[in-house]
Design a protein around this nucleic acid. Structure first.
Length: 209
DNA sequence: GTTCTAGAAC
DNA sequence: GTTCTAGAAC
């Protein structure tokens, strides 16, 4: 086999940033923000520490350097969202969510920055949806508090596996949809009056030509 | 994490 | 008959 298995996909970016320049949105000596290779929304970045090679949140302790790392990621995440808003006019009023997956598939601690539209052909199944729109999506403040209070952050695997199987629920209005295609159609409609009206106007204009 | 696809659901 | 989900991947 090769040097990296699929679980180590993020190691490539961290080990050889120079080979991935087009996939890097922003980077300094401590953190790297890359475009998710399979974005689940119009904007979807991963923020990855460069100096601490921590495989998962389970490996964090109450050590001040670990608490500080997550606090730095939180601060940088907020900064990146502001930067994204400046460069993406469509994000001006929309929310950008920031968080970790409770049980990530890929090694190396990474925090998602993802826009609220969830408009992407890569968003395909229930696991995708529930991993961003339920308690499976862990805010950095939750991790920081757990580390300060208990010196660890160990998500219960059975609990979070069950969460991924929950019904498909719109993150805006709470309405439940039976199937992914129906959810995706609903999300497109429920994505805000202004966005919806604009799309309808564009459709009318297209069909009248 | 994705791809592929059998068979369930429609 | 087609769409859609969900489990295997050696």
């Amino acid at each position: 086999g090769g040097r990296f298995g699929w679980r180590d996909a993020l190691m490539r970016y961290v080990s050889n940033p120079e080979d991935y320049q087009t996939q890097i949105y922003w980077m300094d000596s401590d953190l790297m923000a890359i475009y998710d290779a399979y974005p689940k929304a119009r904007v979807h970045l991963l923020l990855i520490p460069l100096k601490h090679k921590i495989m998962s949140l389970d490996n964090l302790t109450g050590d001040p350097s670990h608490v500080r790392l997550i606090e730095d990621m939180q601060r940088r995440g907020i900064w990146l969202i502001e930067r994204l808003r400046e460069h993406n006019p469509e994000l001006k009023h929309g929310q950008v969510h920031m968080g970790f997956h409770a049980i990530p598939s890929l090694r190396l601690v990474h925090m998602h920055l993802i826009s609220d539209d969830f408009d992407s052909p890569c968003l395909k199944n229930k696991k995708h949806w529930n991993s961003f729109t339920t308690d499976f999506f862990i805010k950095p403040s939750e991790v920081i508090e757990a580390l300060k209070d208990t010196g660890r952050f160990h998500p219960d695997e059975r609990h979070f596996t069950e969460i991924l199987r929950m019904p498909l629920k719109c993150h805006r209005c709470g309405e439940t949809q039976s199937l992914m295609p129906k959810l995706k159609a609903h999300i497109a409609r429920c994505t805000g009056e202004r966005g919806w009206a604009t799309r309808q106007a564009l459709k009318r204009r297209e069909s009248s030509i």
